[in-house]
Design a protein around this nucleic acid. Structure first.
Lengths: 350, 350
DNA sequence: CCACTTTTCCAAAGCGCTTTGGGTAACGCA
DNA sequence: TGCGTTACCCAAAGCGCTTTGGAAAAGTGG
C-alpha cells in the first residue's frame, strides 16, 4: 500500500492525503479523520526512503562506535547508553543507525554518512584528548553532540559529560578522610578524555594534602575485569602496597576485588575500593546495600539526555551549543573502611 | 556533489556515470577509470535514499532489541554480537539499524520496518519458547534469521544457535565426575528458549545417573550479578546446600563467586562453579588461566556468522533456510574441584 | 447579491538515483 | 561499398513521497 493507492481508494489527491497524514492545516478535520482511518485500515505507513528523499531529512541518527582494532572491544556502557537514547528516538520517530568502525577509519565513515545522507546527525562516542573528529564534523557540516568532552579543543560544540574531575577528587578525598594515604588509581586509557580528567581529580585531591601521585600505583588500560585483577596483584606485591584502590569502572573493580580476596585479604577492611559506577543494568552495584563505595552516574540517563540534545539541535540548527555537566552521587558501600594501621599485606608476607 | 553534477563535469550522461560506478559492462574501461577518478576527486558517493528508492533495496539490516520493560535491561552480550555483525555489514556495504523496543510492542516495529522499507531483513534476538515473532515475520514477508531457536515452532526458518543442551549436559557430567551430586542451576528466564534447553541438558545428565532435579536449587531469572549473589546466599543457607553451581552467564557467576567468598568459603575447593561464557570482550574469563571452568562460545563469532547468513538469504531469497549449531568448548579453570567429602557449609555453621 | 477572502483540494514538479529502450559510431566481412 | 554486429553512450521514465502554485468551492461583509 502506497500513497497513490491510498488516495485512489479515498478519491482524494495524493497531496491532500499527504497533508492530512502530516497534520497540515489545509485539510478539513473531517477529511483528515477519514484519511487517518483509511490509513490505519489498510496498514499504510509512508516509505521512509521516499519521504527522506523528498524532505531531505532522513530521520535517523548515527552512532559511530570506535573499536580499538588492537583490543577488539566494544565498550560495555554502550548497551545501556543506546537503551536510553533508543527510548527518545522511538518517541520522536527517529531511527538509530550504528557503525562499528576500527579506530582511524572513522573519517571516511563520517563523510559517507554526510554525503550519502544516511543520517541527520551523529552522537560522538568516546572522545579523546584533542579529538580530531570534532573539527572534522564541523568541517563537513554534520550536526553532532559529544558524549563526554575533548580537552584541547576550543571549537564550540554540544556535549554532555559527567564531572569526572570532581567525582574523582571527591572519591580520593573520601579515602583520605578514612586515613588512606597510598591510593592506587586504575584508570581507562590515557588517550581518553575522561581518564585524563579523572586523573586530574585524583591528583588535585592528593595535592591539596601535600601528597603527590606515585606512578608506580597508577595504571591506564582498557577497563576489563582482568586488568583490575592483574594490576591489583602487581601492586599488592610492591614493597609498599596501596591500602586503597580508586577504579574507573565497576567491571575492573570486580577484578580488583577478586585479586584482593585471592590474597586472603578482605575488601573494606584490609583494602578499600572506590569505583566509578555507570549503573549498568546487568552489573548494578548490589541489590540493597551497595557492594562498592562508588561515584555513580547513570549512563542510560546520559543516553536519554544527549539524544534529546541532538534532536533539538537538528530541528533548530541555529541553536547555540548546549552543555550538560552531570555531578555524580557518592554512595557508600561495603568496600571502604578506615586505613589499617599496620599494613596488612606487609604483615601477611612477613 | 550528486550524479547530475558529476556527469556534467565529466561531459557524460548520468546513465553512463552510474553504470561506470556500479560496474556494468556497457562502459569502456577507459571511461570507467575516468569516472572513478572523478568520483574520488570530488568525494562523490551516491545518496543512499535515492539509490534505495530506485533499486527497492535499502541495504540495511534491522536489529530489534527486546527490552523487558519490567527489568529495563539490555542484554550485555548484545554489544559483542553487533561488533561481530558490524564487521560483516561494513564489508558488504550494509547499514545496521537498531530499534530498542519494550516487550510486546514488537509487532508494530516489524510491520513498520517492512512497510516503510527501512531494512531488507532483520536479525531476531532473544527467541522465546513458541516465539510469536517467527510466524509474524513469515506473514509479513520480511527476511530474517534467528539468534537461537524457538522450541515449539515448526515453521522453517534460518537460525544459528549454541548447542545449549549438550553444553549443559557436559557441564553437569563434568561436575558429577568430580563427585558432585547436589548441583544448583542458576539459569536465565524460563521463557527464553536457551534457558529451557540448558535446563533440559542439566536434567538429562542428572537423569542419566538416576538423580532428579531439585527445584529448591534451581532458579530462573535475569542473569545479573546480584541474581548470582543472592541466589547463592539463599542456597548456601539451605539445610542441604549445593556443592556446585552451574550458571548461565559469567556475570552471574561473578555474583556466585562473591557470595561464596562472603561466606568465607573458597571457590574450587569448598564450592565449585561451572558457567557458560559468551567471551564478552570486557569480561574475558581470566587472562592466562581461566577463572571459571566454563562452556565457551564466542557471541562475536555468532554475530559474524549470523549476519552473513542473513545477507546470503537476502541476496538469494530462494535459498533454503540455513542452520548452524555451534558446539561449545569446555575449558577447565580454577573454579572446580572434587566434591568435598564433608559438607563445608554445614561444617562451618555447626 | 456581488466582490473578496478563506478554506479545501489538486496537478505537477522535483528529490537523486537506476534502468529501459533506443541511437550512433566503429568495426568486420562479403 | 554495403550491411549486420558490436561497443559505447544517451534521453527519459519511474521509484514514493512532499511541496509549490494554483483553482474551485465555501464563507463573509457591505
Amino acid at each position: 500500500m502506497n500513497l497513490k493507492e491510498l488516495s485512489k481508494i479515498l478519491g482524494l489527491s495524493q497531496t491532500t492525503v499527504s497533508r492530512a497524514l502530516n497534520g497540515y492545516p489545509e485539510v478539513k478535520e473531517a477529511t483528515r479523520k477519514t484519511v487517518l482511518a483509511a490509513a490505519a485500515a489498510h496498514n499504510y505507513s509512508p516509505n521512509t526512503r521516499a519521504k527522506s528523499l523528498a524532505t531531505g531529512r532522513s530521520n535517523a541518527i548515527g552512532h559511530v562506535i570506535p573499536m580499538a582494532n588492537s583490543h577488539e572491544m566494544v565498550n560495555p556502557i554502550f548497551g545501556d547508553f543506546i537503551a536510553g537514547a533508543g527510548e527518545v528516538y522511538s518517541r520522536n520517530n527517529y531511527e538509530m543507525v550504528l557503525s562499528i568502525v576500527e579506530d582511524g577509519r572513522e573519517e571516511d565513515i563520517y563523510r559517507a554518512l554526510k554525503t550519502r545522507g544516511t543520517v541527520d546527525g551523529v552522537i560522538l562516542h568516546g572522545p579523546k584528548m584533542n579529538d580530531a573528529r570534532i573539527a572534522l564534523l564541523h568541517e563537513i557540516g554534520l550536526p553532532f553532540v559529544v558524549h563526554g568532552r575533548a580537552s584541547g579543543i576550543d571549537m564550540p560544540y554540544s556535549w554532555l559529560d559527567v564531572n569526572n574531575r570532581s567525582a574523582f577528587r571527591r572519591a580520593t578525598d573520601f579515602l583520605m578522610d578514612l586515613g588512606h594515604r597510598r591510593i592506587a588509581l586504575l584508570n581507562g586509557l590515557e588517550t581518553m578524555d575522561f581518564a585524563h580528567r579523572r586523573r586530574r581529580g585524583y591528583e588535585d585531591a592528593l595535592g591539596a594534602r601535600g601528597l603527590s601521585a606515585d606512578p608506580e600505583i597508577m595504571r591506564s588500560e582498557e577497563m576489563t575485569e582482568t586488568f583490575g585483577y592483574s594490576a591489583t596483584c602487581d601492586m599488592l606485591a610492591l614493597p609498599c602496597p596501596p591500602t586503597a584502590f580508586l577504579v574507573s569502572s565497576i567491571i575492573s573493580a570486580l577484578g580488583v576485588r577478586r585479586a584482593i580476596e585471592d590474597q586472603g585479604l578482605r575488601m573494606g577492611r584490609d583494602v578499600s575500593i572506590v569505583t566509578h559506577d555507570d549503573s549498568l543494568s546487568y552489573l548494578t552495584n548490589g541489590a540493597d546495600v551497595p557492594i562498592f563505595t562508588a561515584t555513580r552516574s547513570s549512563v542510560r540517563d546520559a543516553g536519554r539526555a544527549l539524544s534529546r540534545m541532538l534532536i533539538d539541535q537538528i530541528s533548530d540548527p541555529a541553536l547555540a551549543p548546549q552543555h550538560q555537566l552531570l555531578e555524580v552521587e557518592l554512595t557508600v558501600g561495603r568496600s571502604t573502611g578506615p586505613a589499617p594501621t599496620t599494613n596488612p599485606v606487609a604483615a601477611q608476607t612477613a
